[in-house]
Design a protein around this nucleic acid. Structure first.
Lengths: 214, 214
DNA sequence: TTTTATTAAACAAACGTTTGATTAGTAAAA
DNA sequence: TTTTACTAATCAAACGTTTGTTTAATAAAA
């Protein structure tokens, strides 16, 4: 589906408002006002408020589809290096699309509100966890990774940490006295700290490192 | 504040519905119907829908207040043992009150919807992260823990993992072929796996263990 | 009797959506 | 070239519902 400038404007405003106030907490009049269009244009272009959020999901999910999969395949990196690349890509993806991933997280908290969206999310999650599974198995066969890794929970910690860090970034900023930084500087800082933290966290747990040393 | 049976019934139904459909997505008529009371009883007892969710927060937050703090103080456990006790207590608290913590996570995703509730959450988060900070410093002074631990991000990983695991438990269940378990069995299983996973994760990263062995 | 609890009905406001009219641009017919 | 026909975009207004809350009357409890 191709969208014209006005349609994209509506989608982008909707994304920001849904992220800030939730789907039910945002009225089509809110969206219309901020996007500077007539209320009826939303029904006219998308059919309904429900179809609008579906259009948002369809747009954002096809955007980010499978860039990573190919990158993971053809590389000559070690399993751990691949895993580190993946960590950074998750951080970049989530921090670079905070509004959308905020909406997506909220949707996961609701018990199956919309079949269409649930299906999008399930598909995305399945692809991600399968990717991690393959990466870990690769490392295990090379003898680099431990055998007793719970793939689901490694995935959960990775996405859970990044999601929660984004959700609570205001608290993080205050608690660590980073209010003197500009917004961009703080975002970069958080990215780096998250990257370092997660790489450390997983390195010592999924590799055989300290087992060999015994 | 003391609540009678009918008030508690309203609060509990509201908690379940807010958790399932969000605050804005739940109408007072929904709540009244499921709680089997007249719509006007909500205004009568709580003043407004907004005050109802504030009452819910006040109730649930005073319930769980500071049981843990005392337990942490007087114990003769090692720093790592204390940390493990803390991990289990977080898992128990969040998994034992999934509806409420679902609501709380949702509130954190919204940018400061209600000052009262934001303040409750900020206070709780501050106490939790300070508790972890003290625990980590204790371990560092005993020489058991590494010096370069980011307290905020350790906290983020702990709460982020448990929150996200709860939010995506249906997916976890399917992906790991655990549909044959009863709901209770699955909950117990998830608890155990989470506990083991998080203890492993943190043990290797926050202790000096494999540094000493070098 | 006074206070508390409960109800059905009513309220204005906000909701998502539809309507019918109008505009501007393009294509077809004269 | 002028006229007619058609289309997509836009709008203010109105539609019927649902929203949270209040009211006024009644029942129960103190």
């Amino acid at each position: 589906m191709e969208y014209n400038a006005k349609q994209l404007q509506i989608i982008e405003v909707a994304e920001r408002l849904f992220s800030q106030k939730g789907f039910a907490g945002t009225s089509v009049r809110d969206i219309a006002q901020e996007a500077d269009v007539n209320v009826s244009m939303i029904s006219y272009y998308f059919g309904s408020k429900e179809k609008l959020i579906e259009a948002l999901f369809q747009l954002r999910m096809t955007e980010s589809r499978s860039r990573l999969e190919t990158l993971m395949m053809l590389s000559e990196l070690s399993a751990l290096q691949k895993f580190n690349v993946f960590i950074d890509s998750v951080i970049d993806r989530l921090m670079g699309n905070q509004c959308f991933h905020n909406i997506m997280l909220r949707e996961q908290l609701s018990s199956e509100r919309t079949p269409v969206i649930s299906e999008y999310i399930r598909g995305l999650k399945m692809r991600n966890v399968e990717l991690i599974k393959r990466m870990i198995h690769e490392g295990q066969e090379a003898g680099d990774f431990r055998k007793d890794i719970n793939v689901s929970l490694v995935t959960t910690t990775l996405y859970g940490t990044v999601n929660y860090a984004i959700a609570t970034q205001d608290f993080y900023r205050i608690f660590n006295n980073l209010e003197h930084l500009t917004d961009d500087e703080f975002q970069a800082h958080l990215r780096n700290e998250l990257s370092q933290h997660l790489k450390n966290l997983f390195k010592s747990t999924i590799t055989n490192e300290h087992h060999i040393q015994n």
